[in-house]
């Protein structure tokens, strides 16, 4: 399968034994979707069906969507760079882009929007950052050399919440 012109991906084991996947893409929804698919395909042998797989795809999708929607990164083929490392049950994600800095130079809040109130006032957005914060840890942002850099980690070993045996009745 050949990559579209604005999506590149590569990966493989490093000397230290951890698994690394790198992808670059333009900040456009179609390219981001393709890049996400390539990263997940690259990670598939290392993630399998573990509980962290779903969280990884969701967190990465939210991070990339935020770049497209808010940072207005350029249409350059390498506007967004994604790097994922998997080692010992831990996944480290690093995403950088050449778009505008985060407002105030800091990460947005992680509170889910309120669902109280009538149907007409239900929120249709504002879920992205709270989802990222609730699934990932060590979420860090910095602006460096004119690029946004976001780093976070995901635990791939399912915590008790999803795998705990059912209490006997």
């Amino acid at each position: 399968m050949s990559a579209p012109p604005h999506v590149q991906a590569s990966g493989g084991p490093s000397r230290t034994g951890d698994r690394r996947v790198v992808a670059r893409c333009a900040a456009r929804p179609a390219d981001v979707r393709t890049a996400l698919g390539r990263v997940m395909a690259g990670l598939a042998p290392h993630l399998g069906d573990c509980a962290g797989r779903t969280a990884t795809e969701l967190v990465l999708a939210e991070v990339l969507n935020n770049v497209v929607e808010h940072a207005h990164a350029s249409d350059a083929p390498c506007a967004i760079r994604v790097e994922v490392r998997v080692r010992e049950g831990r996944l480290d994600l690093s995403v950088s882009d050449d778009g505008r800095p985060m407002p105030g130079g800091r990460l947005p809040e992680g509170q889910f929007p309120s669902l109280a109130g009538p149907k007409a006032t239900l929120p249709e957005g504002g879920f992205g950052w709270p989802l990222i914060h609730s699934l990932a840890r060590d979420v860090r942002y910095r602006r460096r050399y004119g690029r946004n850099e976001l780093r976070l980690a995901l635990c791939l070993k399912a915590p008790g919440a999803t795998t705990a045996p059912k209490t006997p009745q």
Partner: peptide
């Protein structure tokens, strides 16, 4: 797979229904 944009679109679809009409969901993958 669904992300927050997809979720927002489903909420929007529910909000744009007429009056008392209801939007229900079925067969959600994990």
């Amino acid at each position: 797979f669904i992300d927050s944009s997809g979720l927002g679109a489903i909420v929007a679809a529910m909000k744009q229904l007429d009056g008392a009409a209801r939007l229900e969901l079925a067969a959600l993958a994990p």
